[in-house]
Amino acid sequence: MICNLCPRRCGAERTDTRSGGVCGQPAMPVAARAMLHQWEEPCLVGEHGAGTVFFSGCNLRCCFCQNQPISRGGVGKAITPERLRQIFRELIDQGAACLDLVTPTHFTPAILEALGDEVWPVPVVWNCGGYEDPETLRQLEGKVQVYLPDLKYALPGPAKRYSGAEDYFQWASAAILEMFRQTGPYVMENGQLKRGVLIRHLLLPGEMENTRRCLDFVAEHFRPGEVLVSLMSQYTPQPGAEGNLRRHVTRAEYRAAVAYMENCGITDGYTQERTSAKEEYTPDFDGRGV
């Protein structure tokens, strides 16, 4: 296919065997791990964990990515849509509370084929970086029950500097509005998210104004009870980090972000202890489960 699935619209030729584009992946799915994952938000984990499939490749270039071996390092195993569908069933048989599809955008056609017309017994979660094209998202209507997008940036400066996507906010904001159009206000049953949008924002050291602007967007577009927000403190410096990114988020920074979130009237969601910045949150991408 000539790929224009994401905002990059790079027009790369991607086939079953030929990789291309910013994501650097073929058209067929490539995955590095399938597992019951305990470190998603509590409303997604349930008793046994989220049934998580970690796909390889990414349309962003985040210099602080904790999943670099799969996002940019080429780690992963090519599978067919039929095998992916089998993986979904295996995860459900293991007790998965949801099907958690991590960085799935560039494999949208194959994932749609794997999901098929089946009514799955657990929610399908689209766990993405937020840099999404609403036109691609519209193909998922009725197939995805929970959207789990990042809202990394509202300012073009850090978006360009850290992720190579100066236009991030214009696409992410439109994508989140499309996600909400599809799901409507979130639905929680017995502490488990069955439908809706859960927006993640990772506080970056020294970028408090960016965080404020992201929270402003949520407060301006959604009323209480419509979306969930997860304000994350788990930024971990990566090798080669420069400037503020060489350090963790300070207590004062995170307290200020939590206070601003509360002052915005955003009360539906999650905050984290600063001790959440742990390497064990990142699994071994050794191909198990794939």
Rank of each mutant, 00 (worst) to 15 (best):
residue 80 T to L: 00
residue 220 E to Q: 11
residue 149 P to D: 07
residue 171 W to I: 08
residue 39 W to E: 14
residue 260 Y to L: 00
residue 190 N to C: 14
residue 150 D to T: 05
residue 66 Q to P: 04
residue 128 C to V: 10
residue 259 A to N: 09
residue 261 M to F: 09
residue 234 Q to M: 06
residue 83 R to E: 13
residue 221 H to Y: 12
residue 192 Q to C: 14
residue 180 F to C: 10
residue 26 P to L: 05
residue 77 K to Y: 15
residue 120 W to C: 06
residue 219 A to N: 00
residue 131 Y to S: 01
residue 135 E to W: 11
residue 221 H to F: 11
residue 289 G to M: 04
residue 78 A to Q: 14
residue 201 H to K: 02
residue 21 G to S: 02
residue 270 Y to P: 00
residue 207 E to K: 12
residue 123 P to Y: 03
residue 221 H to S: 05
residue 137 L to V: 04
residue 201 H to P: 04
residue 261 M to L: 12
residue 244 N to M: 14
residue 42 P to H: 02
residue 148 L to Y: 15
residue 238 Q to L: 07
residue 269 G to M: 05
residue 40 E to A: 06
residue 190 N to K: 15
residue 30 V to P: 03
residue 14 R to M: 15
residue 80 T to C: 00
residue 87 I to R: 03
residue 138 R to W: 05
residue 204 L to Y: 09
residue 49 G to E: 07
residue 187 V to L: 15
residue 67 N to F: 09
residue 80 T to I: 00
residue 284 D to Y: 15
residue 75 V to D: 12
residue 212 R to E: 08
residue 120 W to I: 07
residue 118 E to N: 09
residue 140 L to I: 01
residue 61 R to V: 03
residue 200 R to L: 11
residue 22 V to K: 11
residue 179 M to I: 08
residue 235 Y to G: 07
residue 84 L to N: 02
residue 79 I to Y: 05
residue 3 C to D: 13
residue 183 T to W: 13
residue 135 E to V: 13
residue 22 V to D: 10
residue 252 A to I: 08
residue 217 F to Y: 13
residue 7 P to W: 05
residue 66 Q to R: 11
residue 117 D to M: 10
residue 100 D to I: 06
residue 81 P to K: 04
residue 143 K to H: 14
residue 40 E to V: 06
residue 155 L to S: 10
residue 126 W to C: 10
residue 52 T to S: 10
residue 257 A to L: 05
residue 222 F to M: 11
residue 253 E to A: 04
residue 113 E to Y: 03
residue 214 C to Q: 08
residue 149 P to A: 11
residue 178 E to H: 12
residue 184 G to N: 12
residue 36 L to G: 01
residue 161 R to K: 15
residue 142 G to L: 02
residue 101 L to M: 05
residue 224 P to S: 00
residue 29 P to L: 00
residue 191 G to A: 10
residue 239 P to C: 08
residue 41 E to S: 05
residue 255 R to T: 14
residue 233 S to Q: 09
residue 70 I to P: 08
residue 128 C to D: 15
residue 123 P to F: 06
residue 2 I to D: 11
residue 193 L to V: 07
residue 201 H to E: 09
residue 255 R to L: 14
residue 53 V to L: 08
residue 46 G to K: 07
residue 144 V to K: 06
residue 138 R to M: 11
residue 175 A to P: 13
residue 54 F to Y: 12
residue 82 E to L: 08
residue 283 P to C: 02
residue 101 L to S: 01
residue 31 A to K: 08
residue 137 L to D: 10
residue 122 V to Q: 04
residue 93 D to G: 03
residue 161 R to A: 15
residue 188 M to F: 03
residue 110 A to E: 09
residue 101 L to K: 03
residue 86 Q to E: 14
residue 50 A to M: 06
residue 58 C to I: 00
residue 110 A to M: 02
residue 115 L to P: 00
residue 130 G to Q: 01
residue 32 A to V: 06
residue 249 V to Y: 03
residue 140 L to D: 10
residue 273 E to N: 15
residue 163 S to Y: 04
residue 254 Y to N: 08
